[in-house]
Amino acid sequence: EEVTIRAVSGWTAGSIIASRYEDFIDKLNERGKGLVQIDYLGGAPAIGSPVQIVKKVKGGVYGMAYVTGGWYTNVLPEADFFKLSEVDIAELRQNGGYEYIQKLHAEKGLHYLGRTYDTSPYYLYLNKPVDSADLSGIDIRVSTAYQAFFTELGASTHSAPVPEVYTLMERGVVDGFGWVAEGIFDYSWDQVTKYRVEPGFFTGNGHVLMNLKLWESMSEEQQAMLNEMMLELEQGNYLVAENDAKEIARQTEAGIETIVLPPDQAKIWSETARRVGWEEARKINATVADEIRGFITRP
């Protein structure tokens, strides 16, 4: 018989990031008639805090959710490690990483359907130029995801809510902030930003999770249908990189210059991100960090 899944998104309904998931839901509802239907309730923050969503999935209030790893560390602390990924989901499904991740989720009453957005790094945006990986004397607005990284590079960090970033940049209270390629124009930050630093660091990551009991209660046919649809969604991941490239071109057009660090500095930059990221990860759970590292990074 038909199963109806109550689904939510951690990103604002209708936003660029949520739209791929929303298309996925539309297609599912079309093809899944009589088998699987999705009741899409909307996205955070309108429907609640993004960091509370996965708790509700675990508790069975919602059946399915689309979230980034950093939002459900209160259920699965190791979810934060996904930002350190260097391989895409296709490879994870080959090398056994997918099963390992699935096991971690199952222990918390979750089913890991799949992952999108694995090729979209964070960047440092600045209003004064830098020419090396030494950021001492620079003030950066940070989120928890990358505070340790910038501190390690010598920057002083500043926590502030996202709506304040515009004023902070404009008034020069901070010299920069970390963000992904998308969203700069949504907050009008293009008006107060002069530079974007290459290379990027870490990676954005989006995951589709389900309540484990609900998953297990579904027929094989229904499960197969969802898996098939998820694989289709994952195959579109290369579109994200394309989209990022377009977004960066738009930034350049708007006057945001790209600073490309010289190779030796870029190496320090990337290696520091990697080293600090895994150091932090090992503090959370050393065993899992060491094990998962084998799957999600390249040696």
Binding site: G48, Q52, K55, K56, G59
Partner: peptide, 23 residues
């Protein structure tokens, strides 16, 4: 609207998130 009495457990989490804000 959210999902029966089972969802009441999640009210405190939402109240926490709504107040513990830098803003």
């Amino acid at each position: 609207f959210m999902g029966g009495t089972g969802s009441l457990e999640f009210l405190s989490g939402e109240m926490f998130e709504s107040v513990a804000k830098f803003s």
